[in-house]
Simulated scan of single mutants.
Amino acid sequence: MKHLLSLITIAFLSATTLAQTTWKADPAHTQVSFGIIHMGISEVEGKFDKFDGTIGAAEDDFSDAQYEMAIEVPSINTGVEMRDNHLRSPDFFDAEKYPEMTFKSTSSKKVGEDKYKVTGNLTFHGITKPVTLDVWYRGQVKNPQNGQVSAGFAISGNVKRSDYNLGPNFPEAVLSDNVLLDIDTEFKKQ
């Protein structure tokens, strides 16, 4: 009987693992953006041009989703080359020493219809801290041209640059400590 129970447990766990679907970020339809207040009067926006993201979920509504994202820090793009080079320097991201930023979720809590609070570890500039992001699952569509199924998400949150020792020589009067993250993305079903 004990042996039979073990076999049933293994079969159940295997079926659960097999039921999980993997989704990959579609770079052509994804933007990883940020905004920060400059001198207390204007918002400077930028984005990262190179990244990779994966979602694993067994539930159709993504209520059990696990999120992972890797961003290439040197791909930072604010539209001003001199500023981008400064942001890559040791004054800020130190992109040569810390070329990657990663996020890996640890929990997802449903807070409304298609709305979630996703908590995970954000690592960059050699520091890992937990952050909580707001995720809005926008639904799924099937591309009529190629049959590919895509899911849409709007992901946002705030990060304190002081938590990551980012630009420590630039006081809040010059750059706000609060950085807004804004990711608008499509993930393709694999």
Rank of each mutant, 00 (worst) to 15 (best):
D84K: 03
N85C: 07
H86Y: 10
L87Q: 08
R88F: 08
R88L: 15
S89D: 09
P90T: 06
P90M: 05
F92M: 06
F92L: 06
F93P: 00
D94L: 11
D94V: 12
D94A: 13
A95S: 14
A95R: 01
E96K: 13
E100Y: 06
M101N: 06
M101R: 06
M101W: 05
T102Y: 07
T102H: 04
F103C: 06
K104T: 12
S107L: 02
S108P: 00
S108K: 03
K109D: 12
K110M: 07
K110Q: 14
K110N: 07
V111K: 08
V111P: 01
V111T: 15
Y116G: 09
Y116D: 08
K117M: 13
K117H: 15
V118F: 07
T119S: 11
G120R: 12
H125I: 04
I127K: 14
T128W: 06
T128M: 10
P130Y: 05
P130E: 14
P130C: 08
V131K: 13
L133P: 01
L133G: 03
L133R: 03
D134R: 03
W136S: 14
W136G: 03
W136K: 13
R138Q: 15
G139Q: 05
G139A: 05
Q140T: 14
Q140A: 13
Q140L: 06
Q140D: 10
V141Y: 00
V141A: 11
K142E: 07
N143T: 04
N143Y: 03
P144S: 02
P144M: 01
Q145D: 13
N146C: 11
G147P: 06
Q148P: 01
S150M: 15
S150P: 01
A151H: 04
A151V: 09
S156E: 15
S156Y: 04
S156L: 05
V159R: 01
R161W: 08
S162D: 15
D163N: 14
D163C: 11
N165R: 14
N165K: 15
N165A: 14
N165M: 10
G167E: 11
G167H: 09
